[in-house]
Each structure stands twice: as structure tokens, then as C-alpha cells.
Amino acid sequence: MTAASARRSESEVAGFSASPQLAQALQQIVVELVELHLQGKQAHWNVVGHNFRDLHLQLDEVVDDAREAADTIAERMRALATCPDGRSNTVVATTTLPRSRRASRV
């Protein structure tokens, strides 16, 4: 079976919605990715020291990847008839990531 033949048609998936457990799990992932994006950008702005440039560029990659992944998952959630919530108050209230530190010295 090829990947193309394994795909379902739009009519086969029309009306499909995520279970509450799946919606909750996807929502938590979106929250963590939004928080990772924000903490990564905070670190990016404040990194100092000898290896500043390399770490600065690596943090840009982490930030971009987290932002893109959050967007992809949020769009998938909408396709599954559930609403992603990436508002700041939701992220603060539900993230499991530890708070970021101040400036990073390398």
C-alpha cells in the first residue's frame, strides 16, 4: 500500500473531531511550545560571553522550530474541530516548563 492510497478522502474524515483526551494533550503541547518559544527568545536576547554568537544563532533555531511546531499543531487541532489556546494567560497558567533564568553567560 502506498502513502497516497493509505490517505483518506475528505468525505471520509469530514465531521471527525478529536476526543477530549486528544484535544487536551494537543493543547498541552501547544502551550509548552509557545512557552519554549518565549523562553528561547528571552535567552536569545540576553545571552552573553565568549560563545555568544554560536549560542545566539542556536537559540534562533530553537525559537523558530518551536514557533513552527506550535503553529502546525494548532492548525491540526482546528482540523480536528478543537480550538487551540495560545493566549498568554493560558500559557502561564498551564505550562509545565520551569521559569527561565535571567541572563545566560557562556
Results as ranks from 00 to 15, higher is better:
Ser17Phe: 05
Ser17Tyr: 06
Ala18Lys: 03
Ala18Trp: 05
Ala18Glu: 02
Ala18Asn: 05
Ala18Val: 07
Ala18Ser: 10
Ser19Ile: 12
Ser19His: 11
Pro20Lys: 09
Pro20Glu: 12
Pro20Asn: 08
Gln21Pro: 01
Gln21Tyr: 09
Gln21Gly: 10
Gln21Asp: 15
Gln21Trp: 04
Gln21Lys: 15
Leu22Glu: 12
Leu22Gln: 11
Leu22Arg: 04
Ala23Leu: 03
Ala23Glu: 02
Ala23Trp: 04
Gln24Cys: 03
Gln24Ile: 03
Gln24Gly: 07
Ala25Gly: 06
Ala25Asn: 07
Ala25Tyr: 05
Leu26Lys: 01
Leu26Arg: 04
Leu26Met: 14
Gln27Gly: 05
Gln27Pro: 02
Gln27Glu: 12
Gln28Trp: 00
Gln28Gly: 09
Gln28Ile: 02
Gln28Glu: 06
Ile29Gln: 08
Ile29Met: 06
Ile29Val: 13
Val30Ala: 03
Val30Gln: 04
Val30Tyr: 00
Val30Arg: 00
Val31Gln: 00
Val31Pro: 02
Val31Thr: 15
Glu32Thr: 03
Glu32Ile: 00
Glu32Pro: 02
Glu32Asn: 06
Leu33Phe: 06
Leu33Thr: 05
Leu33Gln: 08
Val34Thr: 07
Val34Cys: 06
Glu35Cys: 13
Glu35Gln: 14
Leu36Asn: 00
Leu36Val: 00
His37Ala: 07
His37Cys: 05
His37Arg: 11
His37Ser: 07
His37Glu: 09
His37Thr: 04
His37Leu: 01
Leu38Asn: 14
Leu38Ala: 15
Leu38Phe: 08
Leu38His: 12
Gln39Thr: 03
Gln39Phe: 07
Gln39Glu: 00
Gly40Lys: 01
Gly40Phe: 05
Gly40Ser: 08
Lys41Gly: 05
Lys41Ser: 07
Gln42Thr: 14
Gln42Asp: 14
Ala43Asp: 09
Ala43Lys: 11
Ala43Ser: 10
Trp45Met: 10
Trp45Asn: 08
Trp45Pro: 11
Trp45Gly: 12
Asn46Gly: 15
Asn46Thr: 13
Asn46Trp: 10
Asn46Ile: 09
Val47Thr: 05
Val47Ala: 08
Val47Pro: 06
Val48Phe: 11
Val48Cys: 11
Gly49Arg: 09
His50Met: 14
His50Gln: 14
His50Asn: 14
His50Glu: 14
His50Val: 14
His50Ile: 13
His50Cys: 06
Asn51Arg: 11
Asn51Ser: 14
Asn51Pro: 02
